[in-house]
Nucleic acid binder design. Sequence first.
DNA 1: TCTGGGGTCCTAGGACCC
DNA 2: TCTGGGGTCCTAGGACCC
Length: 420
Amino acid sequence: MENLIALVDCNNFYASCERLFQPRLRDRPVVVLSNNDGCVIARSNEAKALGIGMGDPWHLNKDKFDRHGVVVRSSNYTLYGDISARVVTVLRGFTPELEVYSIDEAFLSFEGFADPMAHARKLRGTVLQWTGIPVSVGIAPTKTLAKVANRLAKKGEGRDGVFMLTHQHEQIAALEKLDLTDLWGVAGRLAKRLAELGIHTPLQLRDADPGILRQRLGVVVQRLALELRGTPCHEMALSVPDNKTILASRSFGRAVTERSEFEESVASHIARAAEKLRRQKLTAGAVMVFAQTNQFRTQDRQYSASRTIALPVASADTLVLTNAALRAAGCIWREGFRYKKAGITLLELGSASKVQGDLWTPADTPRQRALMQAMDRINAEHGRDTMRLAVSGVKRGWTLRSEQRSQRYTTSWNELLSVD
DNA sequence: TCTGGGGTCCTAGGACCC
DNA sequence: TCTGGGGTCCTAGGACCC
């Protein structure tokens, strides 16, 4: 069987974690609350049966929870992260290729296994035995179909929490049981736009013309439809990529009107974000601060704003340059109305281009040498190994920012290159 | 009074450049 | 100096996921 993917999903993960160490919570409705005990983010099956919804605010439901004897827990992410790692360790024993998709889900390549169902059942039993966490397994040729299979496994289709969708007729039968918004990647807005195109069911989406989907709704929806047909569009990501953003945010919990209090909050959030950044051994290319008013107070005028400050940052062997800078350095030249890039591997990194440090060695021109010397000089002045050359909109002018004090230097290109 | 926090990817549109 | 077309860069925002 080619390209079989298993999605392993922990059942009611946070609630299951709480139960591990509190046996008295077994068979009782359990909910786990978000950071500030604001709203429900996990529910045991018993809690779901009481009609408690994902995201239900606690302060509006306290009475109901009391009435039904619901056990309410604050979240403990350290604990959940630890148990998640244990589950992943067990899963690694069942496949050579695994993608950790979220704290409670992983995609496993089941390619080449003689009896995937038996393998999955064994996996499920082992995870439960070794970690105490119940999981469901969905198996299919694509990630999107594996999600579908997993969903049905949770609903009791298949056997022992395992459900497989290998044949087309099975896939079609499965899709007939779902709504559009049950699909991975379809929420309310998209469902509405699909409906405008006359697509109301997962099966209709599966059989829609991919070219028209692409044209009308974008590449994401096109991929989704192809995946539903069994054509993989999402590769397995075997290693965990570096974060592209790190966010530290909190709701205030009450109205903040004093500037000083606001500033204090911003400072502490930035400190927390920076801690995460250092723990992951990353550097930041920019800092963004945002704030918004309480969207639930619809009687109030709403406001939101954000500011971003670019930081000049690069690892020791990487320079971050814009194309304009490369062009100026003679690495990119113009031919007619076309630009050509000379022997450079340009990796798109956000909207800047990331250029490997050895770029300068093979293509060594006087202009490039001058640029490097100029940058060296400025770096030396500010005690940095590397710096970013940012191109401002000033005519024939370039803005350099040192990392140290975010100072700005505006100078002409020729002035920059006049190295003494 | 109290309504989460942390992510990813894609697209549209304007400024700017040559 | 004018011209037009096309590319890049940047920002904001939408949409979705867990």
